[in-house]
Design a protein around this nucleic acid. Sequence first.
DNA 1: ACGCGCTCCGTAAACGTTTACGATACTATG
DNA 2: CATAGTATCGTAAACGTTTACGGAGCGCGT
Lengths: 356, 356
Amino acid sequence: MEHGGKPRPMKGIRQLAEHLDISIGTVSRALNGKPDVNEETRKRVLAAAEQLGYVANQSGRSLRQGTTNVIGLMIQSSRETVENSDNFFLTVTGGLQSVFSRHKLDLIMLPCPHDEDPYEYLKRMVARRIVDAMIISETQRVDKRFDLLAKAKIPFAALGRSLSGTQHPWTDLDFDGVVNCAVDRLVAHGHRRIAVSAPSSDINLGFIFVEGYRQALERHGIAYDPALVIRAKSSEQGGYQVADELLNLENRPTAVILIYELMAIGFYRRVMEAGIIPGRDIAVVSFREAPRAKFLQPALTCFRTSVHDLGVELAEILLSSMPAYSEEYPGKTRQTVWPLELIPGESDAFHLKAET
Amino acid sequence: MEHGGKPRPMKGIRQLAEHLDISIGTVSRALNGKPDVNEETRKRVLAAAEQLGYVANQSGRSLRQGTTNVIGLMIQSSRETVENSDNFFLTVTGGLQSVFSRHKLDLIMLPCPHDEDPYEYLKRMVARRIVDAMIISETQRVDKRFDLLAKAKIPFAALGRSLSGTQHPWTDLDFDGVVNCAVDRLVAHGHRRIAVSAPSSDINLGFIFVEGYRQALERHGIAYDPALVIRAKSSEQGGYQVADELLNLENRPTAVILIYELMAIGFYRRVMEAGIIPGRDIAVVSFREAPRAKFLQPALTCFRTSVHDLGVELAEILLSSMPAYSEEYPGKTRQTVWPLELIPGESDAFHLKAET
DNA sequence: ACGCGCTCCGTAAACGTTTACGATACTATG
DNA sequence: CATAGTATCGTAAACGTTTACGGAGCGCGT
């Protein structure tokens, strides 16, 4: 206003420079906090940029310095995922951003289309050089994406451990701990015939979960019965199906471990249709808690964690493996399992102990 | 292989050109499908690019032609949203992508951090020129983002109608239709005292929903009672709270319209604690269906739509307003309401009709 | 022989930044 | 006063791509 200049839409750093009557080099240095610029001119530049609404064009910047200041989070919104992911990713995103924003990094989510191969999609995104680093999720038991990213020299971290022995940063929920704790608890209550539901063993989660279950049984000297392992989708529908299959067994289990509490809704419905009350006639424990667990009747016993903090951990692990940021996270462990906490409900049937 | 060349990591179009012994101009034209290039050389170029894994650097491309081939979907993962959005956005994303992929457009999700003002965030993203167009969601009753995008000349479409009279492309769920249908149905069953729950009236949804409710009542000659309008979060917790407040009324309603079926879980829990059975003692209708509606007991009466197709509609509306694509969507209506379908359950108490 | 149109391709400029390098002015030191 | 050092700034190259422009070669009709 004091210049009488109309704040027309800023075109580029060049216009900003000639508006200030300084060279564009100085303007750039001023904006980027470089040391060799007079403090007073820096103030002028910043003020003018603010007033005229100038923000550096990202394409020009990344073309020059080969960096985008953007981290990508790849998610596969597959049918399977859409039904079970719930708000998991949005919550993780919050945790990631709370860390990234301190480093002026922006997070974008890259949703792989249903009909595109995740590997090809990632390849495309990586080649486009649109992100500086990647976070991948829903890791498979054999996941070619690890090699792809390593070869392309793109820093990355995974939400989900690696089973193929490749060395890279990851964090993962403590499936082993959860399933062990669940089995211990159920056994302590007198249960010997315990069913489990899990997704396909191609998915990391599906594999590890059942593996942990098998080991826990072994520890208690209980025989492993494949009929008690139900592969199902992690949705209400899946829970309904699990109950259905278990009811059809001639030798029914007295307890069941579900993966997602979402499944419990369908499971409850199906067993109640058969006159079976969770917590009285069958024990139910669920792996991951969502807010609705406590609204089920009877309240679901499940395992809880802060998904937000999981995002924080994931972000720190990623940054600690990026040369440009690693010194700010010294000695950070790059492969961690994330603990969960037991939230007791009424569904795991304490009183069965007495009956058995 | 026939060349004996090792497929080292491709640096740029220049290396690809000299590998083929053609000029980079021709290579670029060949890759981009320009007409003035021999079909046979085009084949050679495409083959080499495929073999060497060359993909154009996005920064260089967008710097030159001022376009990124990326559409941004802004979401506010506010606390409120995280709890109620469920998988809504991921499903919408699927619909969007099914359209965009036909035009070789990529979709990225831009999650606004909790602690950043959505307006400032959008401003930042727009100025960075990282996307060609934007889709914004969760529109407010007065939303400065419309002006921002219009001034920046960024094509955009909104998921959520405009109430401020600004002219821009949008689609929106048919709140009016839903709430009218719900009220009609409840009134036909003999209800006169009907409660409604909605988010804050600052949110488009909250405002329109209650407005439609008020008009529907008026149409039936029923007095509007502000005590029956409960502003609550769209979560299980919110549903619990709604039930709680309604139970405390001296003159209780006989029916309630909930916004999200997620709320029904909490609502069911609370009223059942008081010995009240939905569908017998109180009628419950919900606005938006998710898979779990049918697993509730008694099954929830609610309104359903294909969220995927909603995404398709939104994508087409956006593209039809972009000069580069508009001719492929001739005569497309740019402002539409999206209908929903009634899914009858057992929760809206048909038999109350006889009693009243 | 000449001109014209057509097909195909090479050249070089341009997009908006950042940054290495050198230039200038000033200060301190001998 | 000469010199070195320091603070500040301007210049220009570079990043990888697209595209306007023009040129070469060719066929064809006059």
